[in-house]
Design a protein around this nucleic acid. Structure first.
Lengths: 258, 258
DNA sequence: AGGGCTCCTTGACCTACATCAATGGCCGAG
DNA sequence: CTCGGCCATTGATGTAGGTCAAGGAGCCCT
């Protein structure tokens, strides 16, 4: 399958999902043997030795999703664990009346689907065209027993996630709208660096609404805050989901509440 | 050391801390070899086999803290990992200007201090008279290498924590004051059951201020919300940190946003 | 018993953000 | 090119919860 052809397929999916009442069949996307998993940051596949890589590639498969396509839903049986290799994924929880809280945005190298319980604790959905590696949970657990070092890596990743989550609680519980948005932009910038991209004009692929649900704000407040920052000369909106952090120092001070 | 004597010591500490400007020396409390660690829920020490228990008890020691005494501070080198055996601990992060976000309350059986990085990601402080088991991190890591099953248990605990943290993000970002307080009371009740206590008149050992910092509210709003629930007959304030959940059904509906 | 804590409660008022509503830009489809 | 959808932006208005201020209750200490 050539690259051109894969893109065609994604457009098909996108077209389909635009017409479906309930966007798309569960855990949709094109599935084929995974040749990726060459991402090297915070990844389960990072720093594997040869033997581990061999065994890993035997159980892994690849998933491709178009924008807005669901990967899995909260409370669905947690059959797989995923590793983002390209694109961006949003992860969220819902209240019965539809209020939504994003619990994270995931980028290449990030991991999702780790669940202690039988079922996923949150829903996951593609933000942009996205590719992921999929590990059947059962088989992965088998591997973990054989290679305790992989388990250690997972533990490290979980601890890291936990620290990130606590930082986010501080943001949600105690920061103002301005501080939240500033923190958010800086976070995107830092993570872009981590996966080897430029830190300055950053890409903000998600909608204002998604950002609002991540920061505990409304679309309108996010939008207003962006324009405030723009008017203050702190950021520049370049259009097309690109934002330039024109004055990082100010953003940094702002993100912390000064 | 007899029980009576230990209590005396704790009163001494309390007396001291009442007079000190900065409450008490770092990681204070009385330290003696640990005979506890017989708590059986979500604990590192739970379900150990005999050999593990032996090795564990060789590295563990015990810590006792009076109310308000710090266990460790954010950014301090993470030398130890702790397991609460009695009492209650609060864990929080601060903004430079002093705003505070509790990231959790810990009860007997809970674990804290797991850190991926060199330093603790948060501060921890006793809410009531508290005893903990202390594991030097380095030595614990040595044990983990020998007993991969313990590592698995830790991973399970971290995943569980992560799910709890995500639930808390939903609360902080999207719930109203009433929903937050209702969720909080139910959480306390559920956790009381988990560690084998009654689920109804529950003990609420922390101050309104602490609760506010946990729920992203002010002291006043927490207090007002308690009285609203009281007036509606949903709860009864029994005084002395005891609360009766008179109408759990209503609380449950309320906690979810209905 | 009385003074000085800290914590809780309640009231009056205020403000940051939500809500409601209108408009405009962009993009894909025909 | 035009039409229809979606998203972002902006304005006008509303409100949940914050802020400020004043008691009051329990507790320890003398």
């Amino acid at each position: 399958m050539k690259r051109g052809q894969a893109v065609m397929t994604l457009f098909e999916i996108r077209k389909m999902s635009a017409h479906l009442p309930n966007p798309v069949p569960r855990a949709g996307g094109v599935v084929s043997p995974c040749s990726a998993c060459n991402v090297r940051h915070l990844t389960l596949c990072a720093a594997l030795d040869d033997r581990e890589v061999t065994e890993m590639s035997a159980i892994v498969s690849s998933v491709e999703l178009g924008p807005g396509e669901p990967l899995f839903d909260e409370a669905e049986p947690a059959k797989n664990v995923f590793n983002v290799t390209a694109g961006a994924v949003k992860v969220y929880k819902l209240l019965p009346d539809g209020r939504r809280q994003m619990t994270g945005f995931l980028f290449p190298g990030d991991f999702l689907g780790l669940a202690n319980e039988e079922n996923y604790a949150y829903s996951a959905e593609a933000v942009t065209f996205t590719t992921l590696c999929r590990f059947p949970r059962k088989k992965l657990e088998g591997l973990l027993e054989k290679y305790p070092l992989m388990e250690r890596r997972l533990l490290g990743m979980a601890s890291h996630e936990l620290a990130v989550a606590q930082e986010q609680m501080l943001l949600l519980g105690r920061k103002t709208a301005r501080e939240k948005v500033a923190s958010f932009l800086l976070m995107l910038s830092r993570r872009a660096v981590q996966r080897g991209q430029k830190d300055n004009p950053i890409s903000v692929p998600m909608s204002r609404n998604d950002i609002g649900d991540y920061l505990g704000l409304t679309t309108e407040t996010v939008s207003r805050t962006f324009t405030l920052l723009k008017q203050a000369g702190t950021i520049t909106l370049l259009g097309n989901g690109k934002v330039e952090l024109s004055d990082r120092k100010t953003l940094e001070v702002m993100s912390d509440g000064a």
